[in-house]
Design a protein around this nucleic acid. Structure first.
Lengths: 209, 209
DNA sequence: CCTACCGATCGGTAGG
DNA sequence: CCTACCGATCGGTAGG
């Protein structure tokens, strides 16, 4: 019980052999920033809010990161990567219906893991600089291509209707998927059921067959 | 050419017989606020930004409105009213498929009239006070009920599939509709076609019939 | 990661 | 709707 640190969160600081800040403070900053950006928006969050919740003083943030916007870019950029990673893990050899069903499930699972984080990824990129926005748009287009491809494949194979407007279909599908961050609860035990019902609705439509 | 006003937008001020501010300045404030809230978010917009673009000084705003948040509440509240009004105008005696198709068209038309405004209505209500948020949630639930009712009616009449999970269906439908503010262009001449393709996708689904 | 601080800007108000 | 202003707070930096 000796050697108690006076600050609230100064304990456990690792001794780095070089000048890099490779301890967990930076990760904690990103974690806190994600939550606050989700709750108050990027502009509504101050670097003081973030610093206080990390347990350091405002100026100390800048020992770990270039600035407030750099935190947002990191959250958004790695966020899209996460969606790509999970949808990319869906086997290519599945038939279009089952492949799309799996992609829907993976997308909804990523959202459900942290809907607030997903909202930041989906919406707060508008507050980035023009250059960063261009990067984000490129990443999003790359993600959308996974869905464009499976739809195109399904139409060609005859699994999906040839009357489908593929462009509008992607917009409907990704819109409903992304909007799930508004209503999905984290750790909902019915998540797997919801994913299947969601896919049923999209695949079969409303009208009686 | 005498009597030229020095300010940029001070011309045309009407002479009111009572103490109410019933001229167009307040309307212009709401209009400018809508655009700026859409571009920079509520927290990223300053009352100085709004005042400058209206053509008055910052402090003068408070002769017309209680404060910054009151502008947001007015935009969001009247915005939801607008959606309700248009969807409510769809004839009740249409068969469920055509009634839902018309409701989809009306919703998309309202969004397309001003997607940036729609984004404010859909997202910026989070920055309102707790009490105002409660009001907004109530209004949104009321709007969602229009869609819940037509889906329920369609399932009962056999027009819509009995296998449908009605709760998930509403989430998918309204999610894809609201997300349209992300991609709809104002004054797109193909709007009517897009509305029909959108409804086709939702009603018929992706899978071949 | 702290001390001490910068210039700029914030939402809002008193009193015309 | 303006003049003149309030206290509070902003993102960020110099120099340890």
């Amino acid at each position: 019980m000796t050697d108690v640190v006076k600050g609230a969160s100064n304990a456990g600081r690792s001794h780095n052999s070089d000048e890099r800040t490779s301890n967990g403070t930076r990760a904690m900053m990103i974690e806190v920033a994600t939550r606050l950006f989700g709750e108050r928006g990027y502009s509504g969050t101050t670097v003081r809010d973030i610093a206080t919740q990390v347990g350091i003083l405002p100026g100390s943030l800048y020992a770990h990161i270039g600035g407030k916007e750099e935190m947002l870019l990191e959250i958004v950029s790695s966020g899209i990567d996460r969606f790509v990673e999970m949808v990319d893990s869906v086997p290519r050899n599945l038939a279009p219906r089952e492949r799309l069903r799996s992609m829907i499930r993976e997308h909804l699972r990523v959202v459900a893991a942290n809907p607030q984080w997903a909202q930041v990824v989906f919406h707060q990129w508008r507050y980035l600089s023009t250059d960063s926005q261009t990067l984000v748009r490129k990443k999003r287009r790359n993600y959308e291509k996974y869905f464009a491809d499976v739809i195109s494949e399904g139409v060609q194979s005859g699994d999906f209707s040839e009357n489908l407007d593929q462009h509008v279909t992607i917009l409907v599908l990704l819109g409903s998927l992304n909007w799930s961050a508004e209503w999905l609860s984290p750790n909902d035990p019915r998540l797997d059921v919801i994913c299947d019902l969601f896919a049923d609705t999209v695949l079969n439509g409303l009208v009686t067959r």
